[in-house]
């Protein structure tokens, strides 16, 4: 009933050769590793250094480090503050709740600019945030050395993440395609009061308030008191961050399929 297992080594019953074969194997490995042991003298030799990788691969005969091993490594994040639009998608997509949006200088005084601050004490390096970033301003780099002496140093402020960005470390090149059938922001027209909150807070400015005609008052019908404007969302610019939904005072915006 059993498939034959082809043991490459038969049990050695000859007591004189009790220990000979493993010792021969170890000696062979010893001779090999005299020239180039497989270990890497870490702080001085780094695998992310491509020249070193090739040197090791050639010297030890091991197929290590060939190819794009480090190209999409998920290490410490790099944040380009200049292109961040404060959409909060990184914060939403974080499963570990390690991202907090903090105010950075440079925003409009009424609507301060908010960029992610990452607590590496909680981060699991899953990369959901950089996948979600619509502008590609939050990426992950090959930096993996994080040792600090104080726990508070584990929290990287946006400025510090921007410093990482400026070091021009290799950054994760993978950009995930936006799905074809994304939801759009839809408007529940009768509820809208035209308050402009959504257009004001939209990080991509893809919401424009269009004038709508004020209906004629009919007999016995009260015209609702509102501003006669209505948001129109430009779907191609929209990054689906949901900011408009969260700021809408009347809860009249929602996710849905545009007909």
């Amino acid at each position: 009933m059993a498939t034959e297992i082809t043991a490459t080594e038969k049990p050695n019953q000859n007591p004189i050769l009790w220990v000979a074969r493993p010792m021969a194997t170890a000696a062979r490995q010893f001779a090999k590793s005299l020239f180039r042991p497989s270990t890497i003298v870490y702080p001085y030799e780094r695998l992310e250094d491509p020249e070193f990788r090739e040197k090791v691969a050639v010297a030890s005969g091991k197929p290590i480090g060939l190819g794009q091993v480090w190209d999409n490594y998920r290490g410490v994040h790099a944040l380009n503050i200049a292109t961040c639009i404060s959409c909060n998608l990184c914060q939403f997509s974080c499963p570990d709740l390690c991202i907090e949006m903090v105010t950075v200088p440079g925003g409009d005084p009424k609507h301060p600019k908010k960029c992610p601050e990452i607590d590496y004490g909680k981060c699991s390096y899953c990369g959901f945030c950089s996948d979600a970033c619509p502008e590609g301003c939050l990426t992950m780099t090959t930096r993996y050395e994080l040792s600090v002496t104080k726990r508070s140093d584990m929290v990287y402020s946006p400025q510090r993440l921007n410093e990482v960005f400026k070091t021009k470390l290799p950054m994760n090149p993978i950009r995930l395609a936006r799905p074809a059938n994304e939801d759009s922001i839809l408007l529940d027209v009768p509820l809208c009061i035209g308050c402009n909150a959504c257009a004001r807070d939209c990080p991509t400015q893809c919401i424009t308030m269009l004038d709508i005609p004020k209906p004629e008052a009919k007999a016995g019908e009260k015209i609702p008191k509102r501003i006669w404007k209505e948001p129109v969302v430009n779907d191609s610019d929209c990054v689906r961050c949901g900011t408009c939904i969260s700021v809408c005072p009347k809860e009249c915006l929602f996710w849905g399929t545009r007909k």
């Binding site: 998608l89 939403f92 997509s93 499963p95 959901f128 996948d131 979600a132 995930l176 395609a177 936006r178 799905p179 059938n181 994304e182 939801d183 689906r240 961050c241 949901g242 939904i245 969260s246 929602f254 996710w255 849905g256 399929t257």
Partner: peptide, 20 residues
């Protein structure tokens, strides 16, 4: 064809409260 909120690796909004 994924359910929209699975939205490929890119999850539009993950938390309750923003998802209808």
């Amino acid at each position: 064809h994924l359910p929209r909120w699975l939205g490929a690796p890119y999850a539009p909004v993950g938390r309750e409260g923003y998802l209808l």
